[in-house]
Amino acid sequence: MTTVPAARDARMPGESAWPALTASAVKRELFGEDLYFRESWADLTDVAGPDAAVAAGPLALLSFKCDGIAARRAGRTLDYLAEHGFSILGSARFRHNRHSMRELWRYNWHVYATDRLALMTLMHSVTDSVLVIARDDRYDGVVPGSVRLADLKGSADPAARGPEHLRSVLAPPNKIINFVHVADEPADIVREAGIFLDRPARRELFAEVAAASADTATERAYAEVGRLEAEYPATGFELDAALDLAGLRAGPDAGARLRFAASGGERLTWDTLCTLIDPSDPGLGIWDFVRIATEVLDADRPASADLLPPSSGEEWRARRV
C-alpha cells in the first residue's frame, strides 16, 4: 500500500507543542484554524525544525506603531529591551494597511466605536515601521519571553501601570497614542509574523533569528530605526500646539469647537471632525490631526472584554504548580 503524505497545511503543533505556545484553550482552538498562524507555523518549522515550539519559548516580538516612530520612541524602546535582559535576534521593516491592522487586533478592536476605527486606519498606516524579535536572556523555562515582555509593557491605561513599565518609560500622551505593540504569547509571535510579513520576508526573519547573532541583529535594528526617523518627520504630540495650529488653519469658530470637545465637552463624530479640520491638510500635519482626534472622538462602545484576554507570567507559573 502506498502511503499518501500529509498535506503541507495540515502540519500543525502536536499535543505536546500547544502547551508551550499558549495557556489559552480558546486561543488554541482559534489559531488551529487561523490562516496566518498555519502559514507562519509551517515556515517556522521548516527553519527551526520539529522543536519549533520549544525554540519559541524564550522569544518575544515587539513592533513599533507609526506614532512610536514619529515620536522618536523606537531607540528608547530598544534600550529598554537590553536593560531588561532581552537580546535582539532579528528585525524586519513593514507597513500596515487597513486589513493587516484589523487582523492583528482582531480580538481587541471589537470594543472600538466606528469613529475610532476610522482613526486607527489613518494613524497605523502613516509610516513604515519595524518589528523586532528578541530573546529573553533571563528565560526560566516556565514563563515565555513574550509573556514576560507583555507584562513589562504595561497597560495602555496610565492608572493601571507602574513607573517601571515600558509604556510609562515612553510617556505616551494618552491611552490611544501608545507607541508599541507586543505579542502576548509564543502562539501570537507565530500568528503575527504571518500578518506582518509575506512568506519570503517571514522565512528570512526566522532564519535570522535561528542564526542567533545578537550583536549583528541589534546593529541592524538600530540602523533601520535610524533610517525610518530620517525618512519621516518627528512630532511632540503636544495637544495645545495642535489645537492652536488647527484654529489658525480652520478659523476661530472651528478652533473653539475643537478646544471645547478636547476639554471634555460634546464629543465629535469622525465626519464632523473632518469637516472642521482636514487630515490631508499639509499645513496642519497628520499627527496634529491625530492628536486632536484622540481627544475629541468617542473611543469605545459597550462590548465584552478582549475576546482573547492576554495571559500573564502569573498564569503561566500557576500551570506548573
Rank of each mutant, 00 (worst) to 15 (best):
P282C: 12
L30D: 03
G251E: 08
R319T: 11
A113S: 06
R203G: 08
D306I: 12
E33R: 15
T235I: 04
P163S: 12
A210G: 13
D137K: 00
A60C: 04
L307N: 11
E103H: 15
T22I: 05
E83D: 15
R38L: 10
G236Y: 05
D278Q: 08
V147T: 07
S87R: 13
P50F: 06
L149A: 07
P309M: 10
D157Y: 12
D288G: 07
A246D: 01
E266W: 02
W18I: 02
V182N: 00
A159I: 02
F206Y: 15
A254Q: 00
V54T: 12
L119C: 00
L119D: 05
L117R: 08
A230S: 14
S146P: 05
A230W: 08
A221P: 01
A171M: 11
M1C: 12
A74K: 07
D128M: 09
S263C: 03
P173H: 05
A82M: 08
A10N: 14
D115W: 04
H165L: 10
A52H: 03
T45I: 10
S168V: 07
G247I: 01
R227A: 14
D253N: 00
G283I: 04
E204W: 11
A60I: 03
H165W: 09
S100N: 09
D51N: 13
R8T: 14
F64M: 08
V182D: 03
R98D: 15
G247T: 01
D198Y: 11
